[in-house]
């Protein structure tokens, strides 16, 4: 049985889709069988970030409505054999996401994959609550910025009350993924530091993804950042986060904090 992960945040634009693609790819690049599922019905983007936008035929809503089989809707990645995408519908109404339908799809995916990674839409409405409902583990994506931290706190509250696990009286495993972190701005005192965010949200840290042009570059070409440039700082941070997700205990390094002479001269981040 695979593990179901929800990537969520409350606030939009913090990096849920980027992180879903990168973590999914990172796990698959290490041989795990992974499916990334887009729950953002009406505003799908995971297909675009994964570079599969032209290969979408059927989607999650088609499967739920019984118009297509799950195997017909799954898109296999062209670069990594064990990586699959289940796209969201772009045109259908999000009311078509039924709790029973989602439950069935998740159950089938769980039996076929090691990891089922659900990319939640922003907000706390139907799509977001359904994306988190069946999760075993939640990844809360947060930017070091007041509105993102506040929304993450709200989402943590929902994870602890509105999920199946919570309703069964079990504890939901939650991890913080701090994205768009700029160590030099934090050092200058103009950005919340890692410890500030950790203290406020008090959930364990999965990783710190540095602010980087590599992320935009990867999405421009339609590749998860771990595939576009595996040696870039954000890719390495995602690889480490993926290993932690598998249960490995790794010390968290703060990317870009110690900038050596060469990196300063050439303007690239050291980590």
């Amino acid at each position: 049985m695979g593990k179901v992960i929800v990537v969520t945040s409350g606030k939009g634009g913090v990096g849920k889709t980027t992180s879903t693609a990168a973590l999914g790819a990172a796990l698959a690049q290490n041989g795990e069988k992974v499916v990334v599922v887009d729950f953002d019905v009406g505003l799908r983007n995971l297909d675009l970030v994964m570079g599969a936008e032209r290969r979408v035929v059927y989607d999650l809503v088609n499967v739920i409505q019984g118009e297509a089989k799950l195997t017909q809707a799954l898109i296999r990645d062209k670069r990594v054999e064990t990586l699959y995408l289940l796209p969201a519908s772009q045109t259908r109404d999000k009311e078509n996401l039924t709790p029973e339908g989602v439950e069935q799809v998740i159950a089938s995916l769980k039996s076929a994959f090691d990891w089922v990674i659900c990319d939640s839409p922003a907000g706390i409405e139907r799509g977001a609550t359904l994306a988190m409902r069946h999760a075993d583990v939640a990844i809360v994506v947060t930017n070091p910025e007041v509105s993102s931290v506040r929304d993450s706190d709200r989402i943590i509250g929902l994870l602890d009350s509105k999920t199946l696990k919570a309703e069964n009286g079990e504890a939901m495993e939650k991890h913080l993924l701090l994205t768009r972190y700029d160590a030099s701005r934090a050092e200058r005192g103009d950005m919340l530091k890692v410890d500030d965010v950790l203290e406020i949200l008090s959930i364990p840290l999965l990783g710190i993804i540095p602010e980087s042009t590599d992320v935009l570059r990867a999405s421009n070409v339609g590749a998860p950042v771990t595939l576009a440039d595996g040696r870039s700082a954000p890719a390495m941070a995602y690889f480490e986060a993926a290993r932690r997700l598998k249960g490995e205990v790794l010390p968290v390094t703060i990317p870009g904090e110690k900038r050596g002479f060469f990196s300063k001269v050439f303007g690239r981040k050291a980590a």
């Binding site: 910025e145 007041v146 506040r150 005192g189 103009d190 950005m191 919340l192 530091k193 500030d196």
Partner: peptide, 13 residues
Amino acid sequence: QSAPAARERLQVL
């Protein structure tokens, strides 16, 4: 520095 203000406001909020 602005980060301490952010931290404090968040804690109260």
